[in-house]
Amino acid sequence: MATTPKKPRKGKEPAPLLAPVRSLRRQILRWTARAVLAIAGVFAALVLLFSFLNPPVNIYQLQESARLGAVQREWVAWEDIAPVMGRSAVAAEDANFCLHWGFDMNAIRAAVAQGGNRGASTISQQVVKNVFLWHGRSWLRKAMEGVLTPAVELIWSKQRILEVYLNVAEFDEGVFGVQAAARHYFNVNARDLSPLQAARLAAILPDPKARSASNPSDFVRNRTRSIISGAETIGADGRDSCFR
């Protein structure tokens, strides 16, 4: 007597159809994990290499070079930068540079309290963004910055972080680094910058395309005076001890 084949239970796929789906899912997860590990390895190698090798170029500089046709940049060693330039940059951008591990939690809390209308990025975070990542607001970039910043702080010295920062920062449209900026604005070398000139350069760092160090607005003049005072205070109270 013939029997009727059993039908699969309602709501369940036959086992033969589930196996390829599960296999594909495992392969996707495996390749995704490998890709993440490979990317992490590349960044880890770059963080280590750039602790003693100078970064040749970054994404933003390439973008600006393509847009403008060329950019001005010239790397100078820490010993060839006027000490007052380092103090001025710290006074302008990150007064607690020597005291934090990459994130200034007091500045972050103040930014949150003010509704996020003020910046809280440290010099270390800006170095990570400029050297390893790209400009623009996105959760992916902020997440990568959050991972890379402590790594840079762990492997690089504070002096190295500040040296790289001053060499990759934009000081005018297409003008990158303190040496190119010193020549561009004052026709001097970075090692010969005066306290006033260093403070002027630091004063334009947050918005270099809208501010000028050689033709300063009233705002830049006022900010320059504040930076000169701040740089003197940082030198007097020892907050420059990590990069002297």
Rank of each mutant, 00 (worst) to 15 (best):
V127K: 05
L162Q: 03
L133Y: 03
N54I: 00
V57H: 11
A82Y: 00
F132C: 04
A111E: 00
T149P: 10
W156N: 04
E74M: 08
V147Q: 10
W139A: 11
A35N: 05
S138K: 12
E145M: 02
A44F: 06
S157A: 01
N54C: 01
R87G: 06
G119R: 09
S121I: 04
L48S: 10
A95C: 04
W156Q: 09
L49D: 13
A91M: 01
V36A: 12
V152K: 06
R141Q: 14
Q126V: 09
I81D: 09
H135A: 15
T122V: 05
M105K: 11
S88Y: 02
Q63W: 05
Q125G: 03
A70W: 12
S124Y: 00
R160E: 06
A113Q: 15
A33E: 09
R118W: 00
R73I: 01
A120N: 04
E93W: 14
S138G: 14
I155E: 01
H135E: 15
A92Q: 08
I123H: 11
F97S: 15
L148G: 08
V42I: 15
V127R: 03
P83H: 09
Q125F: 03
L133Q: 07
I81S: 07
E64D: 07
R160N: 04
V84L: 07
W78C: 12
W75F: 11
A66V: 12
Q125S: 08
W78R: 14
V131A: 02
V36P: 13
Q72A: 08
F97H: 14
L37I: 13
V152A: 13
V147N: 13
A40L: 15
R73F: 00
L37T: 12
Q125K: 11
M144D: 13
G119C: 02
R109F: 15
M105A: 04
